Structures are given as structure tokens and as C-alpha cells.
Simulated scan of single mutants.
Amino acid sequence: MPGESGKKLFVGPRFRRIRQQLGLSQTQIAEGLGISPSYINLIERNQRPVTAQILLRLAETYDLDLRDLATADEDRFFAELNEIFSDPLFRQIDLPKQELRDLAELCPGVTHALQRLYAAYTEARRGETLVAAQMADREGSQFDANPIERVRDLIEANRNYFPELETTAENLRDELNVPTEGLFTALAARLREKHSIVCRVMPVDVMRETLRRFDRHRRQLLISELVDSSGRNFQLALQIGFVECGAAIDAIVSRAGALDDTARRLYRITLANYFAAAAMMPYQAFHSAAEALSYDVHV
């Protein structure tokens, strides 16, 4: 690392990582380096540069190798982010390379989370392909298309609009008549009182690799604690969709014509998801709010 006295560097996230590895607070490391805690705070937020003298003092005081502040990790993170966003999934997003580099340097935790999310996505797509191949092998020429693609075609043919489900979802929200923060309680009460289904949020070690499970025998909807509040609301609305809109969903499926069992089941799940989304964000209410706010996207 350059050692000339006038050299200034912005290494906030790496500086913070080293401090945390040393088990020191900002005040403690500031005392050790002979500078103010507020300056340490600004350094770690990349709002102030750190001079070569401070880096040398850091190395001498805490017996560190200055190579710990090298950019090897950031370069690796940048390369991985670049690979992720090269996927056709993001082809319509114009993301400058500098923004990816900034993300890799300033938010290594976010970068790691994106890597895990993308890995889960690719694994899911691989699973789709495997299931389709297995179905085709088992049933032969009976399956001319991937059931997932068949359902997508049906959604597109209906222009992703199913008025009977939309209306029922809006009626549900009107009946509940609660703000968003009270939606979970209201949906859980409806399932319990109208359908004798109890919702329980379960610890992750019980749910293991699943985020949702419906126990038909005990009439319990189990949701992992990993699911956030909006996700929990969605799962409750989804279950209501299955039990209250079963007939409407079956009617829509029957209009699709001949479907194999896999495509029919997938279509029903997709329609129940449609209902849940419509219940969480009723179109008329959303449209009225958009009109009132002059379509201000930020608001």
C-alpha cells in the first residue's frame, strides 16, 4: 500500500470490518489512534478519507498487516455481482459497472445475500427443468409442453386478469375493513372463525427447509418465523383463497380445456396466489390512491 504522507484513501467498510474483528468500539479504536470517535464514524461511513499515517498507526498499534485493507475481496465480490447481473433475467436493467463496484465495496453483506438469492433462483429453475424432463419421460408424447410454460400461456391468454377473483378479493378487504398493520390479525381471525384453521408462526428449526405448511388433519397453517410480516399476510390470504374461492378457481381451470394433473395443480396454485395478491393490494383502492397522488412513483 502506498506510504506517501499525502495519500488519502476511502476504505470505510474495510476499516469497520477490521475494527469489529478486533472487538473494539469506535471510541476505543479512536483512543488507540489518537483521533476523535466522530472522525472514526465518518471514516467508516466513507465520508472522510483515511490518511496513510493513520493506516500505519493502525498497523503499529494493533499489529496488523496493511494487506488486510487490500481490495481482493471487493474485486472478487465485484466479479461475482457482474456474473449475476449478466443473467438474461436482468437484461432490461441498465446497471452501470461502477454501481456494482460500489455495492461490492460498500455493502459486502448485501453482496453475499444477493449471491445466496441468485443461487436459490438458479436451483429453482434447474428444478423446473428437471421436473419437466421427468414428466416428459414418464408420459411420453402426451406432454407436448412444459406444464410451467402451459400455465404461463394461460395467464397471458387471460392478460393476467381474472375479474371473479379480483372482485372476491376486494370484497374480502371491504369486509375486514382494517389498515395494513392490522391485516394479519384480521386474516388469522377469519381463518379461525370461519374455517376452523389456526395459523401459527413456527421457529425455523421446526420448519427446517420450508416456509409454509398446511396441516389438513390438525387444521393448522404453519408459517416459518423467517417470513416477514407482508409474507405472512400473503400466506394467510393464499389459504383463504384456497378455501373460499375453490369453486371460482375450479371454474377458471375448467375453461382452460384439457390439462394434465401437474399443469392443473400448478394453475390452481397460481390463481390462489393471484387472489392473495389482490387481497393485499386491492386494485380499485390502489388505483384511487395513484390518481389522488398524480401517479407520484416515489410517494
Rank of each mutant, 00 (worst) to 15 (best):
T27G: 07
K7A: 13
D174I: 14
T122S: 10
A279I: 02
P203V: 05
P108M: 07
E181S: 12
R91D: 03
E209F: 11
L42S: 14
V11Y: 05
Y274F: 11
G12D: 01
V204F: 08
T71Y: 14
L130W: 08
V198N: 07
D68H: 01
G23L: 01
L69G: 10
D205E: 06
C107L: 11
S196C: 05
Q98I: 15
G231T: 03
N273G: 09
I269W: 10
R45C: 11
L259C: 04
D228Q: 08
R232D: 00
S36G: 10
L211A: 09
T210Y: 15
L236V: 04
L266F: 13
Q284G: 12
L56I: 14
Y39G: 12
Q239M: 13
Q26R: 06
A132N: 02
S254A: 15
I93R: 09
R264S: 11
R67M: 13
E80D: 13
E164N: 00
P88K: 06
D144H: 15
S294L: 13
S294Q: 13
E170G: 06
L114K: 04
F90P: 01
N273K: 08
L89G: 01
I35P: 03
L69C: 02
Q21K: 02
V297E: 14
Y274I: 06
M280I: 07
D153F: 09
Q134E: 10
R208A: 15
D144N: 11
R116H: 09
R208W: 09
E209Q: 04
T270G: 11
D68Y: 09
L266D: 06
Y62P: 04
A289F: 09
F242K: 10
S86Y: 00
E31I: 02
F286S: 12
L266E: 15
D174C: 11
A248M: 01
F77K: 01
I240V: 14
S254F: 09
Q239K: 07
R219I: 00
E175I: 11
I84Y: 06
L165K: 01
A285N: 15
L222T: 05
A251K: 09
R216F: 10
D137A: 13
L42K: 12
L103W: 10
S254N: 07
D144C: 07
G12R: 04
I29W: 03
Q20K: 09
E291F: 05
Y295F: 14
E83I: 03
R216D: 05
R218H: 05
D65N: 04
I223Q: 00
A188R: 02
A169M: 12
L9F: 04
Q220V: 14
V201N: 03
A30D: 06
Q28F: 08
C199D: 02
S141Q: 10
A70Y: 09
D174F: 15
D174N: 14
L69K: 03
T27E: 10
T51M: 05
L64D: 02
Q134V: 05
F90R: 08
R190W: 00
N273M: 04
T27Q: 14
L222E: 15
